[in-house]
Write a protein that binds this DNA or RNA. Structure first.
Lengths: 198, 198
DNA sequence: CGAGCGCTTGATTGAGTTCAAAAATCGTGG
DNA sequence: CCACGATTTTTGAACTCAATCAAGCGCTCG
């Protein structure tokens, strides 16, 4: 029923309107307010979210209580713990809403129905490969680049997020402290670099 | 024809011997000597390797000429630049042999034939999810753990590799210098920690 | 309007890098 | 099988980037 999701699937996965109709009954929508916790670490994940509006995040909390952000998911992105979902293992991370958000909620029946559509499987494989590539890029940066380089990469890759996400979350995503990020930004300003919007 | 590969596919992907026979003609084998370069950065990757014996690695080289190891592939592992292979994009990394190795070489005809086998597709999806999980774990470590913690994780996760791979390559995989790894090991020895074999 | 959160700034510390050189190990040809 | 050169590992000393600890500022939202 959510139009944005139908259009998304038509364009990206080449799912026809008729095929989408068959999936319709397996799809639900949900509005969540900022701060809503959608998945807890150790829980079995039973839902996959497509973000039609707003912004979610996935993050782990380590023994010392520090958060490490795994992924941001703005409009048009997917988010879930796929391993937990697929293999019914305890989830490795938390998912919550950074902004009030509109979600398309997909459970197993959706994937059972969708997996009968070859185009959907191709799309899914494609999406997994994209994620792998993105993760590989992030690993290269973490291994080889300075805090400043990683921040520069972030703002060029996700310009819109730079403005919407609190700075301390970007720091967490980059693997540095909020203080360090503040200094990196100061240094960039001194060098006369301006993020596109301000 | 390579038995180890047939057995692997039977067990992991539940491919029957008859199904395997159909794939047979699309499979070739190759022996390579230590140091053989199998894929160059920027090249289009046209082969996926299953390592039936020996050890390969994938690595990038950054502007300053430093190598960053993305993946090790010992016996029973796959290695390739899947993105380059699937989408015909320039490869992001090099692949070469750390030891003399026996490879099963798979090209597009294999995947075209295999994708007709539902069990193979399930297996493939499963494998992609495993890779994603492994990469997420590595990202968490790079973001949140010290060099010593990362090394400890490496030796417990890949005990056999610890002995086969030169130390400077492990350092590269962990994102630290060989000198630092040497010091980490010295410190662990002082604390009376011994890697299982020595 | 005040308390708390997010961001900044400063001072200090520390983990890991860099550069240099010695010691150990490996491999190859005689 | 040994010897020699090359590569790998270790050690040392100086340095650097980012973390930590601590304090102050400015918003906003209750």
């Amino acid at each position: 029923m959510p139009d944005s999701f139908r259009i998304y699937l038509e364009q990206k996965a080449h799912i026809s309107a008729e095929q989408f109709k068959k999936l319709g009954s397996t799809i639900t929508e949900r509005s969540v307010k900022k701060g809503t916790l959608l998945l807890k670490q150790e829980e079995i994940c039973s839902e996959v979210y497509f973000v039609s509006g707003g912004l979610l995040r996935a993050y782990t909390v380590d023994e010392s209580g520090k958060e490490h952000i795994i992924q941001f998911a703005p409009e048009g992105w997917w988010i879930s713990d796929r391993n937990s979902f697929l293999f019914h293992e305890p989830s490795l991370f938390f998912i919550d809403a950074i902004e009030d958000s509109e979600l398309v909620v997909l459970k197993e029946p959706f994937f059972a129905a969708a997996s009968a559509i070859p185009a959907f499987n191709d799309f899914n494989t494609h999406a997994l490969h994209n994620l792998i590539r993105q993760q590989q890029h992030r690993i290269s940066l973490l291994i080889g680049a300075s805090a400043e380089q990683r921040y520069m990469d972030f703002i060029s890759r996700y310009p819109s997020l730079t403005l919407r996400v609190p700075q301390w979350m970007i720091a967490s995503y980059l693997g540095i402290t909020p203080e360090s990020l503040s200094r990196v930004r100061k240094e960039l300003a001194r060098k006369n670099f301006r993020p596109s919007a301000r």
